[in-house]
Amino acid sequence: MSIEVNTVTKGWVENETVTELLRRMNFIYPMVIVKIDGEIIPKAQYDVRKIKDGSVISVLHLESGG
């Protein structure tokens, strides 16, 4: 019962949403890109999309400047 977040193994929490996972991981950056098993998750789904056991997740944060 585990997930992988940015290559680190973490415990899986039943019914946890993307928003809840980001909070649990202390990802406080306001702008992030979340990919689950290679699929980009639209921001509009963060509050409803539940993380499945075994998911491989990458969270990339973005800072202004270009």
Binding site: I33, K43, L62, S64
Partner: peptide
Amino acid sequence: AAATKAAFIE
């Protein structure tokens, strides 16, 4: 802007 970057990537 970070928000525009994120929206574009998505």
